[in-house]
Design a binder for these strands. Structure first.
Lengths: 204, 204
DNA sequence: GACAATACCAAGCAAGCGCTTGGTTTGTAA
DNA sequence: TTACAAACCAAGCGCTTGCTTGGTATTGTC
């Protein structure tokens, strides 16, 4: 299943907002603004202006500004978990599975959902505690996909370090790419993926 | 030269505030608050209360709230560049130099200056453009220490990936430790350093 | 074509924000 | 003791914030 099909399936199940709907467009703009200016610096007037309505009208769609942040995070993690699972399922050995995970996460961070992924990583503190728990539970599912592959690699001797530690180091390393990676720089996603594999000394 | 001596030397040169002075204590509290709540969520009233003065009195010490953030960042990077250089100078082969760099950066991120380091990494957007340039110039000096060692490792064949990319991946990986590493968890700094080395497949 | 339900606007409120002001206390040195 | 600067306080100004309110278009359904 390709990315488009996965998105459509999630929209059909009402797990993710249709990007064409009013709600979906607002979440998209919110992700962009939250990443560019930060959640706190982004005002409800900014959000409203980005979709061409009055600030008060926002509260017809969301109970509060924070609920917008929560929705951005929840929908992003649901979508990317689905994409990650799909990617890993298509590979048939653990080395290729790891490569697929790295590439999928890089795509999430750098591509379409990049703005929302950055928000997910860097605006954590702005969530209320209840929202944090909700997002955390979803995050655990995502992380388990990674851990299954890393533990398999460890078991077959291809990895010498602790899988939990490796995953945490990779989380930081991959999410940080959003601050420096520019596709125009001459290095495409495949090449970047291979550089990460090489850094782990796990070539082809 | 140990950490204490390096700090004293920087204080003597007036590059870093004495942690015992009013200014030094304010910067310490500011770093803690900025990390815990974020720069935007931290009010000048919070900052003032943390050192036991009225909010207006802050502006006797700093022209604006943003100048406080700038000072936290500038002093942190100056101190940690000095610590990093000192650490790398004490090792005598490139493998050990890399180990020293990793350990030094982990100490910066996790130890005494951890709060300020987190601010340096995650509150970038809240700086004015002029302040960003000032901090960026200092950061380049810090980064060059890393690049010298990684390029030497590449030249001697111990590293297969691109040194620039490796450094950027490590920046993310190491700074992210602040979100998950707890010394009480049973793993000390030396062990974590070795896990990072192992992840790079560069053991002892 | 009636009628809800949904989506939106225009106006503004209460609270909190960074920062300023005018004046007082504290420390230092002749 | 006097002189003066550095450090601080008490009060509050002007502005922005998230959000509310009461009302008006727009849309979908039978």
């Amino acid at each position: 299943m390709n990315q488009e099909a996965i998105l459509k399936s999630l929209v059909a199940d009402q797990l993710v907002s249709d990007p064409a709907s009013a709600r979906g467009r607002l979440l998209k703009e919110a992700a962009r603004l939250f990443r560019d200016k930060g959640y706190e610096r982004t005002t409800v007037r900014d959000l409203a202006a980005a979709v061409g309505i009055q600030s008060g009208s926002l509260f017809h769609h969301f109970r509060s500004k924070e609920k917008i942040l929560e929705a951005v995070m929840v929908e992003t993690i649901l979508l990317n978990t689905a994409l990650l699972k799909s990617a890993v399922d298509e590979a048939d050995n653990n080395g290729d599975k790891l490569r697929a995970l790295i590439r999928s996460e890089l795509e999430s961070v750098i591509g379409q959902t990049g703005e929302a992924m950055a928000v997910l990583v860097y605006e954590w503190r702005s969530l209320s505690e209840e929202s944090q728990e909700k997002v955390l539970a979803l995050r655990d599912i995502y992380e388990q996909v990674w851990l299954d592959v890393l533990e398999a690699l460890k078991a077959e001797g291809a990895l010498s370090a602790n899988p939990f530690i490796v995953r945490r180091l990779l989380t930081g390393a991959l999410s940080w790419t959003v601050t420096w990676y520019k596709p125009e720089g001459g290095m495409n996603l495949s090449a970047l993926t291979e550089e990460v594999m090489a850094t782990l000394s796990l070539q082809g």
